[in-house]
Every structure is written in structure tokens, then in C-alpha cells.
Design a protein around this nucleic acid. Structure first.
Length: 464
RNA sequence: GUCUCCUUCGUCUAGGGGUCUAGGACACCGCCCUUUCACGGCGACAACACGGGUUCAAAUCCCGUAGGAGACGCCA
């Protein structure tokens, strides 16, 4: 058993961004690959924006993606007292201090620095305050070590070094005695025994601040891995504006979880020329050597292609179950039978579940309206041909797809026209549009009665 | 502004000094298959950001330049 422990630590202030999902996936794969533990921590210390629903939806979406976690999820807000105690202990040890500077005072200093074209840093005015003054509400700041330099050997980025003079005395505990994010993360990661902190690139510079806290506490510093962010097709941060940014969005758009994981995995990670990768392979192959350092753009077309692949790979029954929540009404037994019978050819025409739902309508009932394109195949000649098709269908004892096809081909030959002329007219009648699987397959599935009804309705509609 | 990171086809990427006239996938275009649309098959187009080094040899190593991103909160 390996001692590796990683964690995914979302804050429930919204739904899970697709970038966070990838972070979760990489953590999970790393844990599973190394036989380590994948832990979950809900960072709900921002009480104003955190909600119960968001927490629930995070659990749900992870389960949906089959990213399972070990041990009970840690709820960060339960640890606030502990965080506070750590901060106060650091003051006692002289590694942190009470700061009585007011926010207004600080803002003024900052503005001044900015005006002078300098970068702002807290000036350490209160560094000497180790006593609490009654009636005042100070913050606790860390006495940052600002000599020398700090190097992090990042799992993804390699060695990253900064001058410690860049560091300023960050706030550990707010004036209302709640811990800041920096403090909470470090304490919780330490308490949870996290050995590898794998998170988004945006935390890379925070890492140096956090290392200062680890050092002040005399705790082991974990390894860090910062994976690049995901951008939209235009290179800007991926957001709702690009159509969809959260895992929920993609779920609702009809993407399969296995397609999303596969896509996300390949975004920023590679294994030679492999594109379609199973979970088992992913666990076997995943490592940080092959995680890219550059940010990548989200490409919907590629996701779609992968989704189409996984849809074709799913068996028809599971696909049917999967699409049920997307349907506007419950299916009766006959509709189910038809869809299942036609699924093989329907699913290879759809890239998403939403498209499949649309394609499946031909088995839900007669067309409610005819697409304008049908007009081309609704001339008096076409309608006459359909009369003959009706005769053919009527004459057959059982509607066998191949036999039907042969007979209609013969009909076309007798009239000296191409099959497409008749097939498209039939398609228009049966489906209300000119795109569908083989019309003979559809007839065979629908059966005589419904086929004749639809053919007659079409003729009647266009006779006027 | 300061600090940090990034830069191979439109996109995701392979590539770790010679096997690179730079490989794959998606997208796009063309052809074949074909009752439509897809699937499938075949093919075409298409990239090492720029400038200097190092070396017999550089997409690969070093240094600059340009462009992009992130961080600089009593948010997480």
C-alpha cells in the first residue's frame, strides 16, 4: 500500500467548472495509479456563497463521472476552531503577530504605492505586536521570511523559484476570527495527511505563501503539481459565454460521462498517439511526466467526436435508459420496442444524447409537420408512386426489410427512375424530414398499419 | 506595474541533438461506398512565434525579443 494521499477540494459556491473536474480526475487517476487515497474536502468557509445544493451537486457529478473518493469527505467549516488555534499558536511562538492596521489605512497605502508605480506589499508596521489589545479586533499576520529564495519542484511545472523578498505578511486570521483560505488549506492538508497537492495553475504563486505557513508550523511540505487551466476556443477563460462551462452543462447537453473523462484526460495529458482511452488504461498509464505545461483550449468538436464514439459503444438498452430523462414524455411498450429495434442505426447518426432524442422521434408518433424540404418529393408524380408503395406494403404478408427494398427497387426500375426519388418520398411521409435511417428499416419496425397511415397522411396533405 | 508560467498544423498533441522532406487525432476540403443523413474507407490542406548563440548536427540545449496566461485581497 502506498502512502500517497491526494485531495480534491472544491468550494461549493457554484456548480463544478469543467476545469475543476479535470483537476479531480487527475488527482483521482494519480491516486488510483499509485494505490493511494483520493480524498474529498468541501471548502465551505465562505458561508455567504456556499450552499447545500452546490455541495450535493458536486457529490453527484463526481459519482456520475465515476470518480469515487476514499474516507468521509472533510467539511472545512468544521475545522475553523482548529485553524484559529494554529494561528494563535503561531503568535505565541513569535512566528505571527496581531495587526491593527485598518482596511482603510491599508487601502490608502496600496493606492499610494500604485500611484508611485510600485508594487504594493504590507509594510510590516505591526510586526512587533504579540499582545492582544482589549476592545480591538486585529487580524493575525504571518511573519514572512523574506530573505533568500524558495524553490518548488513542481510535478508539472518543474523547478520554480522566487525571491522571498516578494513575500508579504499574509493574513492568517481575519478580524472576525475566521481563518483565511491560505491558513485553512495548509492546516487541513496537513491534518488530512495529504502528500501531493494537485490543483489548478492559478495556485502556483499561492504555493510559496503556503510553504511559509508549513515552515512556520514545522510541518512536512507536500509535493505540488499545478496543472494548466482550460480556456475557451478563443483563448479566454472558459465560461458560460462559450456555451457551457460546468460539468452539469455538458451532462444536460447530452454528453456521456465516459466521453467527458476521456476528453478531459487528453486535454493536457497524452500517451503517445492514443486517443480513445479506457478507465483501466488511464489508471495504468497516468503520470505527471506526460502532463503538458501549456494551457489548452476547449474544443467542442473533439468532445462531440469522442461522445459519438462512446454512444456507439454503449449497448442499446443502456442508451435507451440513459436518454429517458431527456424525453418529454414516458415511453409506452411499443415505442420502446421500436426505438430498441432501430437503435443500431439511430445511434450512429447522433453525436450527443440530445441528437439521439431528436432522431428517435420517428418512432414516437406520426410526423406533426413536414419539413419544407419534403416539397421536392411531393409532386403529383411522387404521390402517385407512393400509391404504388402502399399497394406493395399492402400486398406483403410480413414486412421484411430486404424484401421491401427489392420490391421498391423493382418499382423504380419499372418507372425508369432512380430509387432515391421513391425513397425520399417515403422518408418524407414517414419522418416528416429527409434525414433518417433506411426507410425500409423504418417500415419494418413500424409495421404495416402505421406505415400506411403515414403514407396516406402525406399524400392527403400534399394533394391540396 | 511587480513576480511566475507558457509558446509544434485552426484545435488537442507526438517529439527529449541526427531515424523530422516533423507523426497521430479532431475539424475543414475532395473522392469512394450509398435510398437521404450518418458510419466506414482513401486522399488533400495544414505547424516547430521571432532573433541570436552552443554543436559536425537543434523543433529538441542556452540567452534575448515578442505575444499569451496566472498571481499580487481580512475571496476561495
Amino acid at each position: 500500500m502506498s502512502h500517497i494521499r491526494v485531495r480534491f477540494a472544491p468550494s461549493p459556491t457554484g456548480v463544478l467548472h469543467i476545469g475543476s473536474v479535470r483537476t479531480a480526475l487527475f488527482n483521482w487517476l494519480f491516486a488510483r495509479h499509485n494505490n493511494g487515497k483520493f480524498l474529498l474536502r468541501i471548502e465551505d468557509t465562505d458561508k455567504l456563497r456556499s450552499t447545500e445544493e452546490n455541495t450535493k451537486s458536486i457529490f453527484e457529478i463526481l459519482k456520475w463521472l465515476e470518480i469515487d473518493w476514499d474516507e468521509e469527505p472533510v467539511i472545512q467549516s468544521n475545522n475553523i476552531e482548529r485553524h484559529k488555534a494554529v494561528a494563535e499558536d503561531l503568535v505565541k511562538q513569535g512566528k505571527a503577530y496581531y495587526c491593527y492596521c485598518s482596511p482603510e489605512e491599508l487601502a490608502a497605502k496600496k493606492e499610494e504605492a500604485l500611484k508611485a508605480g510600485k508594487s504594493y506589499k504590507y509594510d510590516g508596521k505591526c510586526r512587533g505586536c504579540s499582545e492582544k489589545i482589549a476592545g480591538k479586533n486585529p487580524v493575525i499576520r504571518l511573519k514572512a521570511d523574506n530573505v533568500g529564495r524558495t524553490t518548488v519542484d513542481d510535478l508539472v511545472q518543474g523547478e520554480v523559484t522566487i525571491e522571498n523578498s516578494q513575500m508579504d505578511d499574509l493574513v492568517l486570521l481575519r478580524s472576525d476570527e475566521t481563518p483565511t483560505y491560505m491558513l485553512s488549506v495548509v492546516v487541513d492538508d496537513h491534518d488530512m495527511g495529504v502528500t501531493h497537492v494537485i490543483r489548478g495553475d492559478d495556485h502556483l504563486t499561492n504555493t510559496f505563501r503556503q510553504i511559509q505557513i508549513y515552515r512556520a508550523c514545522n510541518w512536512d511540505i507536500p509535493r505540488f503539481g499545478h496543472i494548466p487551466l482550460i480556456y475557451g476556443p478563443d483563448g479566454a477563460k472558459l465560461s458560460k459565454r462559450h456555451g457551457a462551462a460546468s460539468a452539469q452543462d455538458y451532462k444536460m447537453l447530452g454528453y456521456l460521462p465516459e466521453a467527458i473523462s476521456n476528453y478531459l484526460l487528453r486535454l493536457g495529458w497524452s500517451h503517445g498517439d492514443d486517443e480513445v482511452i479506457t478507465r483501466t488504461q488511464a489508471i495504468e498509464w497516468f503520470d505527471f511526466d506526460n502532463v503538458g505545461r501549456s494551457p489548452s483550449r476547449f474544443d467542442m468538436a473533439k468532445l462531440q467526436n469522442l461522445n459519438a464514439h462512446y454512444m456507439r459503444e454503449r449497448d442499446n438498452k443502456s442508451l435507451l435508459e440513459y436518454m429517458k430523462p431527456f424525453l418529454q414524455s414516458e415511453l409506452d411498450a411499443e415505442q420502446e420496442r421500436c426505438i430498441l429495434a432501430g437503435m443500431d442505426s439511430l445511434k450512429e447518426r447522433a453525436k450527443t444524447i440530445l441528437e439521439l432524442v431528436d432522431a428517435v422521434q420517428i418512432y414516437m408518433g406520426a410526423p406533426g409537420r413536414y419539413d419544407d424540404t419534403c416539397l421536392k418529393y411531393a409532386t403529383p408524380q411522387h404521390l402517385k408512386l407512393l400509391d404504388e408503395v402502399i399497394a406493395i406494403v399492402n400486398s406483403m404478408k410480413s414486412l421484411n426489410e430486404q424484401a421491401l427494398c427489392d420490391k421498391v427497387k423493382e418499382l423504380a426500375k419499372n418507372h425508369g427512375i432512380k430509387l432515391v426519388e421513391i425513397a425520399q418520398a417515403i422518408r418524407g411521409a414517414l419522418c416528416g424530414k429527409l434525414i433518417s435511417p433506411s426507410v425500409f428499416e423504418i417500415i419494418a419496425i413500424l409495421g404495416k398499419e402505421r406505415t400506411l397511415d403515414r403514407l396516406r397522411a402525406y399524400i392527403k396533405h400534399y394533394q391540396n
